[in-house]
């Protein structure tokens, strides 16, 4: 049974953007604060810090999750992907390219969370229509109101994937 003393740190191991980190973490530190403050991966944004805005969305073992509500110690052993880890070397992730092409942001603060969330949505494979994209992206708020273009960008990638799959069959 792993245990910390009061004020004690807990040793954990996390793979973040394909790099393994052995870390000593205070148990009250959220995954969001860990990646931003200790690992300097500041692409993941702190919006509301209450699980309401989705700006802090990352992928944990492939699943999109609000990193502000996760105590890092509870995910010992997990693989985390942040916005910094989505591109394949110099090649942007198709969602990143689509967000640029569709001008799917204004201030850009919600964008890393929007893109990580959309990556989770694609992996889940449950969104097939624009209405479903909107419903399954409801956990990501954009106070600039770029929703129309965000939905366009995701719909575009979804359609590319369907046509690539159909071509392969």
């Amino acid at each position: 049974m792993k245990q910390s003393a009061v004020n004690g740190k807990v040793p954990i191991s996390l793979v973040i953007n394909k790099v393994r980190h052995e870390l000593d973490v205070e148990p009250w530190v959220t995954l969001l604060d860990l990646v931003r403050e200790q690992l300097q991966c500041t692409g993941t944004k702190k919006g509301c810090d209450q699980g309401q805005c989705g700006a802090c969305t990352v992928l944990i073992d492939g699943q999109r999750i609000n990193s502000c509500l996760v105590l890092a110690v509870t995910r010992d052993g997990a693989e985390i992907t942040t916005i910094e880890g989505l591109a394949d070397g110099a090649d942007l992730h198709p969602l990143q390219t689509a967000f640029i092409e569709h001008d799917a942001f204004q201030c850009g603060y919600c964008t890393p969370g929007q893109i990580c969330s959309a990556a989770g949505l694609l992996r889940e494979g449950r969104a097939h229509t624009r209405a479903e994209i909107r419903e399954y992206m409801s956990g990501n708020l954009c106070r600039c109101g770029a929703y129309t273009n965000i939905a366009d960008a995701i719909e575009d990638v979804l359609r590319q994937r369907v046509s690539t799959k159909e071509a392969a069959e």
Binding site: M1, K2, Q3, S4, A5, V6, N7, G8, V10, P27, W28, V73, D76
Partner: peptide
């Protein structure tokens, strides 16, 4: 957030 002791049990009995 207040400081607290953290424990991670493996069994329901320990929890």
């Amino acid at each position: 957030m207040n400081r607290f002791e953290y424990v991670r049990p493996d069994t329901v009995a320990h929890a």
